[in-house]
Nucleic acid binder design. Sequence first.
DNA 1: ATAGCCGTGGAGGTCAAGATCGGCGTGCAG
DNA 2: CTGCACGCCGATCTTGACCTCCACGGCTAT
Lengths: 217, 217
Amino acid sequence: MGGGVTAIEQTEAVRPRGTRLPRRARRNQLLGAAQEVFVAQGYHAAAMDDIAERAGVSKPVLYQHFPGKLDLYLALLDQHCEALIQSVRSALASTTDNKQRVRATMDAYFAYVEDDGGAFRLVFESDLTNEPAVRERVDKVTNECAEAICDVIAEDTGLSRAESMLLASGLGGLAQVVARSWLHSDRSVPRDQAVQLLTSLAWRGIAGFPLHGTDQH
Amino acid sequence: MGGGVTAIEQTEAVRPRGTRLPRRARRNQLLGAAQEVFVAQGYHAAAMDDIAERAGVSKPVLYQHFPGKLDLYLALLDQHCEALIQSVRSALASTTDNKQRVRATMDAYFAYVEDDGGAFRLVFESDLTNEPAVRERVDKVTNECAEAICDVIAEDTGLSRAESMLLASGLGGLAQVVARSWLHSDRSVPRDQAVQLLTSLAWRGIAGFPLHGTDQH
DNA sequence: ATAGCCGTGGAGGTCAAGATCGGCGTGCAG
DNA sequence: CTGCACGCCGATCTTGACCTCCACGGCTAT
């Protein structure tokens, strides 16, 4: 249907063309421009020309900072993968009260999907998951987050590691999917209330499992 | 890194070349071949040549049955989207006991990811989500499934529709992510036990919300 | 002030992959 | 027997996207 299908939403004006920047600053600017384009269009639809134009720079400059398109993408991906893992770990370490742990972790996911102009899409909605290097990063994120949650679960319940990992994957998946779902919704439920509601759901679910020693399920 | 990057895992021998088939049968065979290739390689890495070769047919035949690559992909996508929606709806309608509803729905997701040689990847791990037609289908699946779950939640708790949708999205996300996670795991936890475990998690979580009339949360 | 240097820019090569054109063989109707 | 229709194939065209080659302009050292 009519018009503007391929047009990019220009959230920010194209940089003035012809300014000279020190190497490090230029690199960061290129990363920023690349992120905007990758987030808006995905990996495949994003052209190196688009990224160069977005940064107000010509294509060879891009290749003087990054060997290729994939490297550029991986640089961004690594950055944001690490951010989520650290954020989840911090949330789990922020308290020893397990219910507050659930709340903090849920909030971490919500904060993550709201930050950085949609950078989470590189991790959770990548269109390059068939590339082994990308697959590896994405799997690493879900695994490390699940492991972090699993540590707490295995510690505080009598469940086996495999069972704890299943529960941890489920809770991580719940948080990830629902945070994205909330982000795309009309936000008639404010973030704090959504986090509260989902914390109730998750906490009631996980708190019912047996503690140390007891072995009934 | 060493060899065989572009090689396809040939799970089944390439069809004998030169057989003549009636039009309808050929179409179905092409759909089958396309599904195998799309599942194994994703949309972008899958070449029309690969699909034709897989079916033991030359490329023009492919184009005599489908106008283009996207149409072929959408035909498969529609098929499997509808399958999941129906499966979830059936699970929810299979009983009036809410705990059994949770169990049946969880099992539906597990069954879905195990069926059809990984066809679920077209829905949950598509690398074409930037294509509006694909995005629409995928969103429709998650939405319809969440709506179906939401109906039950909104019916049996005093929560608003928006809040119920959040919980429904969360539970759907939980089931989807954990089913995929279990599928890729070493399966040291057998499917029935995994379903049981996650049913406990989800049911304990959702059962704690207020019933009709009562309004404490 | 001036000569040299380094980073920038536009134009072009290469290649993979989607889409297509004319010819071949087989089976059936007359 | 002969002509026709149908299904199929090899070979080719074209587009688009990633990735480099020759000219330009501002900074530095003497």
